[in-house]
């Protein structure tokens, strides 16, 4: 069936690093799992990312960051999302993020952090689980 709900995901790269191999692998894997993946390209500001997530009405925002600026950029993104009433969007982070930073990021509204070694299957499974249980809660 071609109709009905599809999980929509925005894959975005905040900040100044230009390594998007990981983001592209994730985008490809999610596409192959039947999701609609929007990729915005490199070097995005928090404002650009949040505006895109809003216009595209995504279920999931997947942020890839390797520059080390995650403690600044990720809370800026979740902050803007809260301002615009988008707290229901599932926000995930991946890339190079030290373990000790994760609790703080989770406090800021990042649902989970996926580091190197995560398989794409794990990620697909995680997203499906979260979105489906959310859909059930709405019913």
């Amino acid at each position: 069936m071609e109709s009905g709900m599809k999980i929509r995901v925005l894959v975005a790269k905040p900040g100044l690093d230009s390594h998007d191999r990981g983001a592209k692998v994730v985008a490809r894997a999610l596409r192959d799992a039947g999701m609609e993946v929007i990729y915005t390209g490199l070097r995005q500001t928090p404002e650009q990312i949040v505006e895109a997530a809003l216009q595209e009405d995504v279920d999931v925002l997947a942020l890839s960051i390797l520059s080390g600026a995650h403690m600044t950029l990720l809370p800026a993104i979740t902050g803007l999302m809260e301002e615009r009433g988008m707290s229901d969007v599932l926000v995930l982070a991946g890339g190079i993020i030290p373990k000790e930073d994760i609790p703080m990021l989770k406090e800021c509204g990042i649902a989970d952090v996926f580091g190197p070694g995560t398989t794409t299957d794990e990620l697909v499974h995680y997203i499906r689980g979260k979105i489906e249980s959310e859909a059930k809660n709405l019913e």
């Binding site: 599809k6 596409r31 039947g34 929007i38 390209g41 995005q44 500001t45 895109a52 216009q55």
Partner: peptide, 29 residues
């Protein structure tokens, strides 16, 4: 797979925060 990779926004970055522009990517389904 029924999935899609929607990449048109990559080429429209200069428009992404313009409040007079609304971009929606759509899969052909």
């Amino acid at each position: 797979s029924g999935g899609a990779f929607l990449g048109d926004r990559i080429r429209m970055q200069s428009l992404s925060t313009d409040q007079g522009v609304f971009i929606r990517s759509m899969a052909s389904r």
